[in-house]
Amino acid sequence: MTFRARHLLGIEQLQPDEIRTLLDLADSYVDLNRRTIKRTDALAGMTQINMFFEASTRTQSSFEIAGKRLGADVMNMAVSQSSVKKGETLIDTALTLNAMHPDLLVVRHQNSGAVALLAEKVNCAVLNAGDGRHEHPTQALLDALTIRRRKGRLQRLTVAICGDIAHSRVARSNLLLLGKMENRIRLIGPPTLMPAGVGEFGCEIYDDMKAGLEGADVVMMLRLQKERMDGGFIPSEREYFYRYGLDAEKLAHAKPDAIVMHPGPMNRGVEIDGTLADDINRSVIQEQVEMGVAVRMAAMDLLARNLKAERGRAAAGVMV
């Protein structure tokens, strides 16, 4: 078992063996979560603070449940109503929190790199729950777990990621993770929603969705932000759905057993057809949510083990 990281800031810093370790542990937490009695004491006595500078329902509750099932004391800091509004800087907020001795800090922030900046200033383990357009590592990990359980492997798959790649941290983390695990990645979307320099990513790029889906094992849809729909990046919602919305007809170009994923929340009728999203034979969207809790439990468990080991060494006076 290997997992060396002190923080979970991004997929970029993880090695393939660390990813496998985390997913293996998450598998065991899936079983636990399906039982009636779901508590363990992996984080007993530890304090977890969820600090969401950007509104979130799904990710925040997933982290909260994950922490509680591991026995941690979980606190949700309502950042939008707090001192940040009074002009306190991110670093001061971090130092204030740090003084309360949390063990795990789960942070989402609207600026790329902000979570890493915060991690430099605190003594606890920091989990990135999404920073700007940079990374959203637990989302990529839960997607990987979902794929691995459905497809029986996480290598040599053709994965199509479709939609707003440019503004998506989910896409970046997935690109990195699926790349590290040696999969073939296709990016599908209009050029206005492709990041600059995408040609150098080592992916195949398509602006024709049907061509891009040809032979895909996994179809990963991304959410299109409301503010990008009105003529700025795409002409209109309906034109987008016509060209890039996933429906049964377009999905027919993928492999017959291809699975459909979406990080949620969905815009039905914009990026994905409602009926297809509910089709339990193709869509694994609900399963992704379930895997989310397990992956977050595994991530926090592993970081807590490293933290305990580090503190143990420090207490024993060993040079670290």
């Binding site: 970029e12 790329s112 790199g113 920073d131 700007g132 357009r133 940079h134 990374e135 440019a166 941290r169 970046r172 990041p195 600059a196 320099g197 995408v198 150098e200 990513f201």
Partner: peptide, 15 residues
Amino acid sequence: TSGKFASLRGLPGVS
């Protein structure tokens, strides 16, 4: 400056 580096860092770039 826009490009692969800017995109992977998730920072807004200019050509």
